[in-house]
Design a protein around this nucleic acid. Structure first.
Lengths: 333, 333
DNA sequence: TCCGGGCGTGTAATCGATTACCTGACCGGC
DNA sequence: GCCGGTCAGGTAATCGATTACACGCCCGGA
């Protein structure tokens, strides 16, 4: 592959001039054209590696995602990638698969590659490498999940208003015994969603007793199914269940069906994260939709602010309720 | 961040010695330990960018995936990433979103970054940049989709045996009017699947007339739904439908339900690509499962062969039928 | 005692760009 | 006619590693 020296020789100028032409600096018309002609003839493309070494900027961002196979995170990763590319950055995606060790492994690799900035939707309750990242001075922005003790802005959605709407929706439909399937203990988002929902229900005089709150062992269908099993075995089983993650909701739905029960007539089901598939389930699932694309966009912008040395606050975007048929009402559209 | 010179000074040796210690060459015990101690004290990590410039190897692979939001490709990307990482390579994923322009954009960027090798599951019928990649001498391996005119090995699954099994399965269940929803015209995999299925059906004396073959305008649910609409409007509607992609199958299912018909009693439904969600649909979908993990693994290995300058043949792995309930039989397990 | 070989380590070139600094040409004003 | 300013463009240092080559030391054999 041709390098800058080849171009310089062909155009009869020095490498400095070639570099200046390509970076839009001084040269005059005649020289400029000769250089551009040489570039075109040789099919020259600057070596990004060499440039990165010299300028100490790789124009690459890193994204460590907690679980790429969870469709919510797939969408989020896609949104981040698109925004990054639009702004001239490449993105290296690492999938932690909900394992803190793999997450650390990825962060380590990304730091070694001298990425300009790092986005992390942390698996588990955080990890040692996050501190290391901050220590090296690599700009860091947390995505979707807050990590206690890590000094970095966090970009995520808040469910308060959507859950308020949901509580009203359920109350209007006469559901009086709600239950919640929450993420494994210690996940901050899960706790927040639970509390918001409890508060919203209370406003309608509907209680949320401890026995109708189940913590799933994992963020996968099987975990959701286990909790749903326990809930349906209750002497007074719930008439509406909110799962705080889309995969857990799927497992919960499996359990309902396995018992020959029906959604929504026997029990209403609502999920967090409105993934594309929900519209194709039977019945289509009512869901709290996070603004995925905006989250990705905001995350990249926040990170770029930090890369350019500016302070950047955390971002909280509102989620909203998408009413479908899993609570017993016809869809609004 | 500390560099190799800092380590050398601290250990009282030259940079060459540090490099040799870190790369497992000559130095003797005493020196070696002093260097390692200095490395530990300074928290030194080699600068991958500088190393890549010098050695002309980035230890990075590129993957351009046709549509990251299609769960089949998400799984495939995940499989590729895991295998690459295990072998000491990072992976940069680019999502083409089924657009040849975006695909070219990504390939361009990846070549500029001097990745060691490129994996592409090409969107559309291929693109100009694929030729460019070959021209630069960057090792290239095609994934899932063959591209005519591009001289590169292709790693994919073949459905012949699974479709033979499927034809027998359908025949045994008394389905005599099969139909197929194929990918947009010109997609080689789609054509192959269609022909394999036709041949397999013929062995059971079941015809597949042209009016029961519908080509979808895209690889998304809406396209599948449109074709299904046409099929169900036929004077003699099909009693079994095979969709050659998982998203088209979803749309087809929507149409069946929208008409108040049932799967499998009114029409059987089978999809290509066994994505995790299929098991959670109602009824769980029978599917032709591609060996995703093995495909990813084989793709990375094939690419590494080429990177090391060896010839590598194309790889064809067998898909297999996963029987669930969407054709009318209870699941085998 | 001297010489050769092997081994450990240092010196410096190199990868391909960017960029600070310098040079020389040209022009205008006095 | 001389001097200073402007500007295009060249020279060379630099980023942080790897590695060819050279050097010096030590040891063994003649």
């Amino acid at each position: 592959m041709a390098n800058i020296k080849d171009v310089a020789e062909r155009a009869g100028v020095s490498v400095a001039t070639v570099s200046r032409v390509l970076n839009g600096r001084s040269p005059v018309a005649g020289t400029r054209e000769r250089v551009l002609a040489a570039v075109a003839e040789l099919g020259y493309r600057p070596n990004v590696v060499a440039r990165a070494l010299r300028t100490a900027r790789t124009r690459t961002l890193g994204l460590v995602i907690s679980d790429l196979r969870n469709p919510f995170f797939t969408e989020l990763a896609d949104a981040v990638e698109q925004e990054a590319r639009q702004l001239g950055y490449s993105l290296i995606i690492g999938n932690a698969g909900e394992s803190p060790e793999q997450q650390d492994d990825h962060i380590r690799t990304l730091l070694d590659r001298r990425i300009d900035g790092l986005l992390v939707s942390s698996a588990g309750t955080g990890s040692a490498m996050l501190g290391e990242a901050v220590a090296t001075g690599t700009p860091l922005v947390l995505l979707d999940r807050e990590v206690p003790g890590v000094a970095a802005p966090c970009v995520r959605a808040e469910g308060r208003s959507a859950l308020t709407e949901l509580a009203a929706h359920l109350a209007a439909l006469g559901r009086r015994r709600p239950a919640v399937i929450v993420a494994p203990a210690g996940t901050p988002v899960g706790d927040e969603r639970l509390e918001s929902f409890r508060t919203a229900l209370a406003a309608h005089g509907v209680p949320l007793p401890p026995e109708r709150i189940g913590s799933s062992p994992d963020l996968r269908p099987e975990g959701g199914r286990q909790v749903m099993r326990r809930l349906l075995d209750l002497a007074e089983p719930p008439d509406a269940v909110l799962a705080t993650d889309n995969l857990m909701a799927l497992g919960a739905l499996d359990e309902v069906r396995a018992r020959g029960l029906r959604v929504p007539s026997d029990v209403a089901l609502v999920a967090f994260d409105d993934v594309a598939w929900f519209a194709h389930l039977d019945p289509p699932l009512t869901a709290v939709a996070q603004p995925t694309r905006e989250l990705g966009r905001a995350a990249v912008h926040t990170l770029l602010e930090r890369i350019e040395g500016r302070e950047a606050p955390s971002v909280l975007l509102p989620a909203h309720l998408v009413r479908r048929r899993s609570c017993g009402e016809p869809p609004t559209d």
